[in-house]
Nucleic acid binder design. Structure first.
Lengths: 117, 117
DNA sequence: CTTAAATATAACTTGACAGTTATATAACCA
DNA sequence: TGGTTATATAACTGTCAAGTTATATTTAAG
């Protein structure tokens, strides 16, 4: 049995990210995912189990069918981990902006000087 | 040899996320990371290699020493993947807000009616 | 009540990666 | 030049997860 602990680990697998992307549109049956991803049914079931275990999907039974639905809450944790880095990116952009403004200002004042000279 | 293709895959490993967290503060020598994480030097070097290969760190040589520095650009891809889900979360909050406002309004008009009756 | 459909699970194989130990490389220092 | 420091790499082991095949389970349909 597979024992994934975190959503992060569950999302390493590209197929599972793909499944989530498909579930973003609407809930899906296992069979639909099998057709769309062109993978074996047991494999899809295994991936869905992992996603269930980390809370990224929920199931609703409908006769023999199972509707799998996206749950985005566990993504918050990843988003928060990324937030610190996003801040770094933003700071960098801010510095770049400042630099550009300063250059702009210099150019302007140069332009004025030249125009005046 | 390890063959990681994406930043996402490189970040599965908790140790590598930890390394990035440490590099967020400032560039570090391999030896520092070894001490801070209490892992073997070859293991740290291997993790750093993976991070280098996906572009999450760069190295600057200084005699025998190597300064490893964070590069956040590859995280943009992950952030963009998450963006679609972040949007879902925000929409949900927005709906919740709307619902709460509507309830609030109803309560208010009820209050008025009661006050008038 | 038997069969078919939809899904889950068990058992197994394989490959890849984490971690270890030992060694190579490279630059400084005495 | 010889030794020491800092890091990388090679070779190996063990584990775990992806993927497969076969089978179990559940429910509808005839």
């Amino acid at each position: 049995m597979i024992l994934m602990t975190t959503a992060f680990e569950a999302l390493v697998e590209p197929t599972r990210r793909h499944i989530l992307d498909l579930l973003r549109e609407r809930p899906r049956l296992v069979g639909e995912l099998v057709d769309l991803l062109d993978l074996s049914q047991p494999l899809i079931s295994k991936h869905l189990r992992v996603l269930r275990e980390v809370g990224l999907v929920t199931v609703r039974q409908d006769a023999q069918r199972r509707w799998y639905e996206l749950r985005i809450e566990p993504l918050v944790e990843i988003d928060q981990w990324l937030a610190a880095y996003r801040q770094l990116l933003e700071e960098r952009f801010a510095r770049l902006d400042t630099l550009l403004s300063e250059l702009q200002e210099k150019e302007n004042s140069n332009g004025e000087t030249e125009a005046q000279g």
